[in-house]
């Protein structure tokens, strides 16, 4: 340190704080966790490009042909289309029904309200396996078994309550006086909804939509029991390939898994692009 520095005033603090033991343990544990996940992901990606890989650190040779085979032979394009279709349908229906339901539940006091809220929680916290089979049986009984409608319907069972529960606090956050003001200044029900409530609820609706999409993409048990070969989603197709006793080659399933991951990540990335709540609000009134 020069004399000029001292003359200029107190020296800036350059000494770094020593990390505490807790911090070190936390960082090491977090590092291990991330490393394991990345390792598993990397092995799947590598395997999907392998010609053969029997033990050892690296496969014998690399090839991109598994992706082509996965696409052509296992009905992957069909499964992809089904996944998109089911995802969009479930999100749209869950929001259309769940937002008004959430509004009513937040605004109206009625006897048994807390019981309704509790019942809403059930399909969300119960493992889907506990009711998937019965639900599938019901679908076959009413003649919907194997259809796309059935896939959408069973996926609505856990996701619709999810939307309702997410929306309730978002609605409660809007002051009833704001709604009163809209009415007094001339807004009928439709305009109240479209000009005031929807813009204010948009962040909540986007968040709910994303969670519903993620849940539908990953819903294995529910979809598995009601879908047929031509209505199965990507996860179900993946499971079918892995559990095929005929022995689908490992790299082929790995290629399918990578495709599934890409779809999920892409869907999430696109959704998160829109869901930052502050951004969502700001876009409304440039």
């Amino acid at each position: 340190m020069t004399t000029a520095d001292i003359a200029a005033g107190p020296p800036p603090r350059t000494r770094r704080e020593r990390p505490t033991l807790t911090a070190v343990i936390t960082w090491v544990a977090a590092g291990c966790f991330v490393a394991v996940i990345l390792g598993v992901l990397a092995s799947v990606v590598v395997q999907s490009f392998a010609t053969t890989w029997r033990g050892g650190w690296w496969p014998a040779g690399l090839t991109a042909t598994w992706y082509g085979r996965a696409w052509s032979s296992t009905g992957m394009s069909q499964a992809l289309a089904n996944t998109a279709q089911a995802g969009v349908a479930v999100v749209v229906i869950a929001l259309l029904a769940g937002v008004p339901a959430g509004y009513l539940l937040a605004r109206r006091a009625f006897p048994g309200r807390s019981v309704v809220m509790l019942l809403m929680l059930l399909p969300i916290i119960l493992p889907p396996m506990t009711y998937a089979v019965q639900l599938a049986a019901l679908m076959y009984r009413v003649g919907l078994g194997g259809s796309m409608t059935a896939v959408v319907l069973v996926n609505l069972v856990p996701t619709l309550p999810l939307v309702v529960l997410i929306m309730v606090p978002f609605v409660e956050q809007i002051s009833p006086e704001v709604e009163n003001a809209a009415r007094v200044f001339g807004a009928n029900n439709l305009r109240l909804f479209s000009r005031v409530l929807v813009p204010l609820l948009l962040p909540g609706m986007l968040a709910a939509g994303i969670l519903v999409l993620v849940r539908t993409l990953g819903a294995f048990e529910l979809t598995f029991f009601v879908s047929a070969a031509d209505t199965q989603t990507l996860v179900v197709a993946l499971f079918g390939a892995i559990s095929d006793p005929g022995g689908v080659p490992g790299p082929l399933t790995a290629a399918m898994a990578v495709t599934y991951m890409l779809v999920a990540v892409l869907g999430l990335a696109v959704s998160l692009r829109f869901v930052t709540p502050s951004q969502a609000i700001r876009q409304r009134h440039r």
Partner: peptide, 14 residues
């Protein structure tokens, strides 16, 4: 067709 002023202002936050 009344004009009204509310205790909590009740402006539209968006």
């Amino acid at each position: 067709g009344f004009g009204m002023v509310f205790q909590s202002y009740a402006l539209f936050p968006h």
